[in-house]
Amino acid sequence: MQDAGAAISVRDLTRSFDRPGVPGAGWRRLLPGGTRGAPTVALHPVSFRVERGERVALIGPNGAGKSTTIKLLTGILHPSGGDARVLGRVPWRERTDLAYDIATVFGQKSQLWYHLPARSTFELLRHVYDLDAGVARRRVGELTERLGLRDLLDRPVRTLSLGERMRCELAAALIHSPRLVFLDEPTIGLDVEARQAVRAHVRELNARQGTTIFLTSHDAADIEQVCERVIVMQAGRVAFDGPVSTLRSRYVRGRQIEAHFLVPVDRPVDLPPGASLVDVEPQRWRLEVHEAGAPVGPVVAWLMACGPVVDLTVSDPPMEDVIAAIYRETAGPRVIPGGRP
């Protein structure tokens, strides 16, 4: 796989984890780990490719293998099998060299020194990345400007709010101007405003410097507002890989029609063919037309006949619903190896 041009190329990557079993009998109880159960397969063979400068979201329900994928691509974990290149390097073999070119942000963990101001962590990171004092100063200045850190840098990190800390966290991750950034649930736990700040900055990073973005999230807006492409994982496999726009049509057929009435209207008894009710309030009905591309004209006409319509909107289902549909699909019987494409 000579894919020096791609930011990330992954081929048949697999990873299993030993499952600690029940302790053995007799003297074997003293052995660490006990008898092993069957290993958990976190990744079945997974393959995909990300070009430089792309913004890709990796989504999927809990336990799908998103974090495992990121940990393999950053060299934190060694794979059970398969091959991967990140910026032309094999992450687990050339981890330290790769570290100069990439950044990793874990939404649930902090790399800032808790008791010190963020500025001290930056200073330490300057030496970790062998940055020139001048270069580092300019870079910190730039990040301070864009992330609005002016009043935060000199306060001990433990006194910062989660959102403020996350902005410092981003700055710490970006201090060495990485060419590729991995973000594992970067907006988890943040309020609306802080989420928007993180998204805006990640977008800007990509627009200004062409930085490749690879993020995981359960938040629909992270995907819609930051990424152009989505990879859906389900039980350790890639179930979908394509533009955000086609994600909708893959998982949710049809469109939604919402009608507002001038006066309350009784709940309908019959529905036009191909439509179903999503939500009914006396003055507002929401319907779904099942087949993508099916004409909505008859349904609109039917609604007009039901009562005095004052407003009518036809729309794609919201991204939340799309994601919910994806997660629902996996929630059924657990995928059996070889059972799904």
Partner: peptide, 16 residues
């Protein structure tokens, strides 16, 4: 699992 941080930084993790 707290080794993660040190593994994504340059320089040998054991030194960190």
């Amino acid at each position: 699992g707290d080794l993660d941080f040190y593994l994504v930084l340059p320089k040998p993790p054991v030194l960190h």
